[in-house]
Simulated scan of single mutants.
Amino acid sequence: MPGWLGFYAHEEDTYLLRQRLDEDPEIAFILQNGPGRWRAVENIDELQGKTVLWHVPGGPLPLLGRGAGEPDTLIENPFAGWQERREGLDYSVPYFGPSWPSALLLELYTPGWRGLETDRMPLSGLSYFGDQSGRTTHPTTRRWWRRMRDWMRRHAVRITRSGPLEGRHADVWAMPAALHAIQAGLERDDHPLTLFPRPRPGR
């Protein structure tokens, strides 16, 4: 079953979330290592923007073929890096097809980040793809997702996306610094951002 964990985060909250993921032995971060090149790392210095998380016990990552006639394979060692053979529309993150059970997408934005409005709280989120397209999620990944949701419950407050903060429509989380800013009057976005980088020359 796919899932989405929506939340608001301010600058200070990003350190709390990064520490949680950095200290998790089951999670690796996929970072760009040149045009179309990627590698998995265990720790990360800056977490804002889009980041693919690899749940390592959940299974290997795919290396997609360029098209008909070139089969998909598995990446032998993501920590050693790989060259992508097929890119998605958003080349700021690696492309594993429409979904992949052991990959999660973190979209983390704070007010003012890289030109975003400073007087609005953007909506961040963590996407879990679950069982899709005939692929079954490993039980360890399901358990990890449940632990992550529990962690958010312990460190954040569930609020609404607009209007009064409390109510039956509360469906996203506000981390501590974000909650303080929202309570002080900072406007909040009610939909996730849709950010794509500009196409590379020659595409």
Rank of each mutant, 00 (worst) to 15 (best):
P2S: 11
P2E: 02
L5M: 13
F7P: 07
F7V: 05
A9H: 14
A9G: 13
E11G: 15
E12T: 11
D13M: 14
D13W: 15
T14D: 11
T14L: 13
Y15G: 13
L16D: 10
L17E: 05
L17I: 11
L17W: 10
L17M: 12
R18H: 14
Q19P: 15
L21T: 12
D22G: 12
P25K: 01
P25V: 03
I27Y: 06
I27W: 07
A28L: 15
I30C: 10
I30Q: 02
Q32K: 08
Q32I: 05
R37F: 05
R37D: 00
R37P: 12
W38F: 09
A40K: 04
A40P: 09
V41P: 15
N43L: 15
N43G: 13
D45I: 14
V52G: 02
W54A: 01
H55L: 09
H55G: 06
H55I: 03
G58F: 01
G58H: 00
G59C: 05
G59T: 02
P60T: 00
L61Q: 01
L61R: 01
L63I: 07
L64G: 04
G65P: 05
R66E: 05
A68H: 06
E70I: 07
D72M: 05
D72T: 04
L74M: 04
I75H: 03
I75Y: 06
N77D: 13
F79S: 04
E84W: 15
D90K: 08
D90R: 08
Y91D: 15
S92Q: 08
S92A: 05
V93D: 02
V93Y: 10
P94C: 08
P94F: 07
Y95V: 02
G97P: 14
W100C: 12
S102Y: 03
L104H: 02
L106C: 03
E107K: 14
E107G: 08
Y109E: 03
T110L: 11
R114A: 12
L116T: 02
D119I: 01
R120D: 01
M121G: 03
P122D: 02
L123Y: 01
L123P: 06
S127N: 07
S127M: 13
S127Y: 15
S133D: 09
T136E: 08
P139Q: 01
P139C: 02
R142V: 00
R142G: 04
R147L: 11
R147Y: 11
R147V: 11
M148F: 15
D150A: 10
W151Q: 09
R153L: 15
R154Q: 12
I159Y: 05
R161V: 12
L165T: 04
E166C: 10
W173S: 08
M175H: 04
A178Q: 02
A178G: 04
A178W: 03
A178M: 01
L179I: 03
H180A: 15
Q183F: 10
A184D: 04
A184R: 07
L186D: 04
E187N: 06
R188L: 14
R188T: 10
R188I: 08
R188M: 13
D190I: 09
H191Y: 07
H191F: 10
H191V: 08
P192E: 01
L193S: 04
T194I: 11
T194L: 14
L195Q: 06
P197Y: 02
P199Y: 02
P199R: 02
R200T: 09
G202L: 05
R203S: 13
R203L: 10
